[in-house]
C-alpha cells in the first residue's frame, strides 16, 4: 500500500474567474484513512478547490495528487481511485436511478454482473428502491443527493470527494448518508467533504480545514483547530463574521 502518500495532496492551487480570485493558492494534505472536513462560508472557494482537486476544473496554477498520482498529468489513474459527488452539477437525470448507476458503473469499466449486484444493494440501502422507474429529474432534493452518493461509491473508490453532501437533505437521509460515510471511512477509505454545517463536521471529522477568501485559514486535526472551544466559535472568528447587532434594528421588536 502506498502509505507514504497522502490520500489527497494539493499544492498551490489557484484559480481566477474574470479577474476575481476564487482560490489563491491552497495547500492541503489529506492523510489516508482520515475523515476530512473542508469548512468555509458561501463563496469561500470550496467548490472551486474541490473541482480542481478532482479534475473537473483546470487550475491556473498548482497541482493535485491522489495517492501519489497527479490528477492533471496522469488523470486516468487518479480518476480511477476517486469517487466524486460534485455540487450544483446535474446528474444525467433523464435516467432512472438504476439506469444511472448502471451507466456510471459501465463507464468506469466495471463488470456488468458486479454493477448489477452493487446497484441493487446501494438502491436498497439508500431507500431508493421504491422509486422504481421514476426518472432522477423527478426525485426530491434528498433523493438526488443519495443517488449522487451511490454513483460516487459504486466503483469502490479509495478516496471519496463530496461537495456539500448534506445540503438540502432531510434529517433521515442525512443520518443515512452519515452512517454510510462512517462505514466507508472505517473500512480504510478516505472521505473529503465540504460543508458549512458545524454539527456534522464536529461529529464526523477527524481533520478540518477552514477556507475563507480563497485561502486556508486553519488546518489540522479537529482538536487542534478547535483548541478547546466550539468549532462554530473558531469558524466565526476566523471568517470574521459579525456576531452581535446593537441598536440598528430596534424596530424589529414591536
Amino acid at each position: 500500500m502506498t502509505v507514504e502518500h497522502p490520500a489527497l495532496a494539493l499544492r498551490g492551487l489557484a484559480k481566477r474567474f474574470d479577474g476575481t480570485v476564487a482560490v489563491a493558492g491552497v495547500d492541503l494534505d489529506v492523510p489516508a484513512g482520515s475523515f476530512y472536513g473542508l469548512l468555509g462560508p458561501n463563496g469561500a472557494g470550496k467548490t472551486t478547490t474541490l473541482s480542481m482537486a478532482v479534475g473537473l476544473l483546470r487550475p491556473d496554477a498548482g497541482s493535485a495528487w491522489v495517492l501519489g498520482h497527479d490528477v492533471w498529468q496522469d488523470p486516468v489513474t487518479a480518476k480511477r481511485l476517486l469517487g466524486v459527488m460534485p455540487d450544483g452539477v446535474r446528474l444525467f437525470d433523464r435516467l432512472t436511478g438504476a439506469e444511472l448507476l448502471a451507466y456510471n458503473g459501465l463507464l468506469r469499466g466495471m463488470d456488468p454482473a458486479v454493477v448489477d449486484q452493487r446497484a441493487a444493494e446501494l438502491l436498497d440501502v439508500l431507500a431508493l428502491g421504491d422509486a422504481g422507474r421514476t426518472l432522477v429529474v423527478d426525485y426530491s432534493a434528498g433523493m438526488k443527493k443519495k443517488i449522487g452518493l451511490a454513483c460516487a461509491l459504486l466503483h469502490g473508490p479509495r478516496v471519496l470527494v463530496l461537495d456539500e453532501p448534506f445540503e438540502a437533505v432531510d434529517p433521515v437521509s442525512a443520518a443515512l448518508i452519515r452512517d454510510i460515510l462512517t462505514r466507508y471511512a472505517a473500512g480504510g477509505g478516505t472521505v473529503v467533504f465540504s460543508s458549512h454545517v458545524m454539527e456534522v463536521v464536529e461529529r464526523l471529522c477527524s481533520h478540518v480545514a477552514i477556507l475563507a477568501g480563497g485561502t486556508i485559514k486553519r488546518v489540522g486535526t479537529i482538536d487542534e483547530v478547535r483548541g478547546g472551544r466550539s468549532l462554530e466559535q473558531v469558524f466565526v472568528e476566523v471568517v470574521g463574521g459579525r456576531t452581535a447587532t446593537g441598536e440598528e434594528l430596534s424596530w424589529l421588536s414591536q
Binding site: A102, Y103, L106, L107, A119, A131, G132, R133, T134, D138
Partner: peptide
C-alpha cells in the same frame, strides 16, 4: 410525476433500450 413501477432485470439490463440492445455491456455500450 407518478411513480412508474414494473422494474424488470438488473440495473444494466434496464439501462440498455431495445434499440441499443446489441451493444456490448462496456463503456462504449453504456
Amino acid at each position: 410525476a407518478p411513480v412508474r413501477r414494473g422494474v424488470t432485470g438488473g440495473a444494466v439490463a434496464q439501462l440498455f433500450p431495445r434499440v441499443a440492445g446489441w451493444a456490448r455491456r462496456d463503456r462504449f455500450g453504456a
